[in-house]
């Protein structure tokens, strides 16, 4: 009940089937990591759960607490409490970060409720300070001309402002130097609490030195093929992905 639960999920894009019966449960309070080689379907899983219109779900279920996510619009899923930090956040010229986050918060208000500007900016600045972001960023266009690190910080800023029940971080480490990685990881770690479940998708073990997961899952060919503790990530770092693939085929 208090979990993000995926059961036997199958999904495809066009004629190509990508998820082949994936099952995974992320209870509140836990951090799970999914690792896997390129093309194993990690990002597809993130997009399918977020309601991306390009993907078609052909079987299985996905529920957030008690609500089914499948068939909902991306904005409905977000308002239910799922946040996706993008691997490649889009650049949106002319839309300032402050206005964007405010619009997202506004979308969560009941009729008649209003955001108080003073409190909003106080909150926004506090979160920006935590992420080491210059306050001038509030008036900059969303991701427009941002460096890789700036984009990822901006994702974490949005996540902390929207305070989701569950968060999926899709390759948040890609394109980050070690300093940026630390700042972004600290931001995620601050959000770890018993009321929130987090799924970290990554190709490399490096990120998991900073965001230490409770469980590590290995994904291959659209399925979870192995689950273990954080030491599994180290084993993968050592041995690569091939042995897992072979084991999966053998079984």
């Amino acid at each position: 009940m208090n979990s993000l639960k995926i059961d036997n999920l199958q999904a495809s894009i066009g004629d190509k089937s990508i998820l082949h019966g994936l099952s995974l449960e992320i209870p509140k309070g836990e951090v799970h990591a999914i690792m896997g080689p390129n093309g194993s379907g990690k990002s597809t899983l993130a997009k399918v759960l977020s309601g991306h219109p390009d993907y078609e779900v052909t079987g299985g279920t996905a529920t957030l607490d008690d609500d089914s996510l499948l068939g909902l619009e991306p904005d409905e899923i977000s308002r239910l409490g799922l946040f996706l930090a993008f691997q490649y956040p889009m650049e949106v010229p002319g839309v300032s970060i402050a206005n964007f986050i405010r619009a997202a918060l506004n979308a969560r208000l009941k009729e008649g409720e209003k955001i108080k500007a003073v409190e909003y900016y106080k909150d926004l600045y506090a979160h920006m300070d935590d992420l080491g972001m210059d306050r001038k960023f509030t008036s900059r266009s969303l991701n427009d001309g941002f460096s890789g690190g700036e984009k990822k910080r901006c994702e974490i800023l949005q996540m902390s402002m929207l305070n989701p029940k569950y968060a999926i971080l899709d390759e948040t480490d890609s394109g980050l130097d070690i300093d940026a990685l630390r700042v972004v990881s600290d931001g995620v770690n601050r959000m770890r609490n018993p009321e929130r479940g987090i799924l970290v998708i990554t190709h490399y073990q490096r990120l998991l030195d900073y965001i230490v997961p409770d469980y590590v899952h290995v994904m291959s060919e659209g399925k979870i093929v192995r689950t273990g503790g954080k030491e599994l990530a180290l084993e993968l770092e050592d041995r690569g992905y091939d042995w897992i693939k072979q084991e999966a085929v053998a079984s």
């Binding site: 977020s50 991306p74 904005d75 977000s78 996706l84 956040p89 949106v92 619009a103 979308a107 929207l162």
Partner: peptide, 11 residues
């Protein structure tokens, strides 16, 4: 772009 904005809860 639309998906990105919608994924933040905006219709």
């Amino acid at each position: 772009d639309l998906f990105y904005l919608q994924s933040r809860g905006i219709t």
